[in-house]
Design a protein around this nucleic acid. Structure first.
Lengths: 206, 206
DNA sequence: GTCTATAATTCGATAGAC
DNA sequence: GTCTATCGAATTATAGAC
């Protein structure tokens, strides 16, 4: 675990970090099979042979990148779920806002992760303790404290994630159907920060 | 390899149809870049060279398959949206049931299409008249007839599709989180046939 | 650590016999 | 229409000089 401490100057990355950064961008944009190591080399400004020197193989590099992506995807969620200063409804708003900003800078991230989960369900996903992250969270306690459940917590979880994530996954489709440009679409996504908590709270009522 | 011994349904198809059928299965399972034409040849039981004889190139074959998939995906929806014997709420139930049975036999279909839309937004999607399919449907008239909109029709559309499709896309994830086997998960999906229309109707109220 | 050159393999596509 | 055999290009990975 002994690693060089990276200072806040982001322009000065070592070779290994440069490769990893570029690899994440290319893998996310093109997927594993369509990614060429030559493109990673070009975008990171390093020599092609150095990819294998630092990471042994394309597959190994991909696994490291994917692990980082999943940790980032879940880590932020975990923090919100466990904030004890927020009500259930406030947490829902925070979750939507969190993924809003995340997908704004990384629009290909959700499909990238969902594709990996589907084609390798017994891979990295299981090692992340997804289940305990949820069931041992402050959020889960709040949900149970709502009294006798008007809605199956599993359905509730599906719905909050579906309403938040899916409009980003299918954004090209909805832009066409709704005749929306990027600015108008982002405005709609911002509106959902307030709307989704309202809809979700309605599901808790009978 | 003995091929013509068993007379199953696939043997009555001509060569072109055999290739197309196998190609759809492989493309959907692996994606375009990870698909090998040799695998298509094996799974369809035909000679490798015949793929190029009938379809000129792998890319051309893919475009035909993708067009079929999208037509199937949208065609069924279009029929439901225009059924004049169903109320708004009944239509919602039919939509969920429709995609439930579709994804049961083709679990990779939604991600396959969403990936194509994202990486080629100006391709096939625009030629299908997605926008008019919706805005000129009987469903859309019913939605407007609900009176002054309590919810933006675009948000309403996003939500019904998100609640229906996303649980299938992310099924491997939810199975892990909820400790569910295939049977239990399908039971949950069946429950959503009744639940989603209820949730959607709540969104229409203030 | 970084580079050039190349090995080793795989893939899409085609030529030509039948 | 279908087959065998193979080409040519592209890709990952490595050997070896510096």
């Amino acid at each position: 675990m002994a690693k060089k401490i990276v200072h806040s100057k982001e322009d000065v990355l070592n070779t290994e970090a440069k490769i990893k950064q570029a690899a994440q961008a290319v893998f996310m944009r093109k997927g594993y099979a369509a990614t060429r190591t030559r493109v990673i080399a070009e975008e990171s400004g390093i020599n092609l042979a150095l990819i294998n020197y630092y990471f042994r193989s394309k597959e190994n590099l991909f696994n490291l990148v994917m692990l980082d992506c999943m940790k980032g995807f879940i880590g932020g969620l975990k923090q919100i779920l466990n904030r004890e200063d927020l009500s259930l409804e406030e947490k829902l708003g925070e979750i939507v806002a969190h993924y809003l900003s995340m997908f704004k800078s990384q629009p290909d991230l959700p499909l990238f992760i969902l594709h990996e989960i589907r084609h390798n369900p017994n891979g990295i996903v299981n090692t992340l303790g997804m289940k305990q992250t949820l069931t041992k969270s402050h959020f889960y306690q709040q949900l149970k404290a709502e009294g006798p459940p008007k809605i199956d917590p599993m359905h509730f979880l599906m719905n909050i994630i579906a309403l938040t994530v899916f409009p980003f996954i299918a954004s090209p489709l909805f832009k066409i159907v709704g005749d929306l440009d990027d600015a108008n679409y982002m405005k709609m996504m911002n509106d959902r920060k307030k709307l989704i908590p309202i809809w979700m709270k309605q599901m808790l009522q009978k």
